[in-house]
């Protein structure tokens, strides 16, 4: 059955189809990645799964059809999205951003405070800047905050849209270290990445998207050695080292 199942999803902007007939699955406890070039419709896919865009087809969560539910309800059910544009509350403090991350939770202030402490332990940099406005953070810190804020809602399924975007290599490394750790905590992950190699090295299963369609899929460990994929996405030729 799977945690998340998408069946024949199509999305149009006006008369233009951005996504055609996409089906994919995320099993509980798995990291699934969708790779592909810019403009392939990957971000559109995540926006649709979280309910920000109308679509045709079906989206099942734990076997339940959620296609008609609004974004807020999906968040309450356990969806989390770290969007490509981060969408932080720029003129609010780091602490308040985290507080709002827990808006959909119903387990009381004390539990939320504890979660914030846990998040601060995981991202010590954020603790140092807890009273600073989110808009004044550096690129890497913003991404950490977006990550941390999404975790505050205790999601079952966390969707990451290009988490390595605009980050220094050291921080990218950190991001890809955290992802498997979250999986081990029981959060399933749907990862969209342009950095195809890192994504496939981290994930269990991978899909390749091009011009709105899924063109390849398979175990990540197999895809990463696929000669055609290597030529297209993994950097033209094998790495020098």
């Amino acid at each position: 059955m799977g945690l998340l199942a998408i069946e024949n999803l199509s999305v149009s902007y006006g008369k233009v189809e951005a996504i055609r007939n996409v089906s994919l699955k995320v099993e509980a406890g798995e990291i699934v990645t969708v790779i592909g070039p810019n403009g392939a419709g990957k971000t559109t896919l995540l926006m649709t799964i979280i309910g920000l865009l109308p679509c045709r087809g079906r989206i099942l969560f734990n076997g339940e059809d959620i296609t008609g539910l609004d974004t807020e309800r999906r968040v309450e059910m356990g969806f989390g999205l770290v969007p490509e544009r981060r969408e932080l509350f720029a003129e609010m403090s780091v602490y308040d951003n985290l507080l709002l991350g827990a808006f959909s939770r119903r387990d009381g202030t004390a539990a939320v405070r504890r979660s914030i402490d846990e998040v601060f332990d995981r991202f010590p940099r954020l603790r140092e800047r807890r009273n600073q406005n989110a808009g004044t953070l550096s690129g890497g810190e913003r991404q950490m905050l977006a990550f941390a804020r999404a975790l505050m809602s205790k999601p079952t399924l966390l969707m990451l849209d290009e988490p390595s975007l605009g980050l220094a290599p050291l921080i990218v490394k950190e991001v890809f270290r955290i992802i498997p750790f979250l999986r081990d905590l029981g959060v399933s992950i749907l990862l969209i990445e342009q950095n195809a190699r890192s994504a496939l090295e981290t994930a269990n299963y991978g899909y390749v998207m091009e011009t709105g369609e899924i063109v390849r899929q398979g175990l990540a460990s197999e895809l990463i050695h696929d000669p055609q994929l290597i030529a297209t996405y993994l950097g033209g030729q094998e790495r020098a080292h």
């Binding site: 920000l52 807020e72 968040v75 969408e87 003129e91």
Partner: peptide
């Protein structure tokens, strides 16, 4: 400040 961001928090 950010409608999309707020919706993603369930607001």
């Amino acid at each position: 400040m950010n409608r999309t961001g707020a919706r993603l928090m369930g607001i």
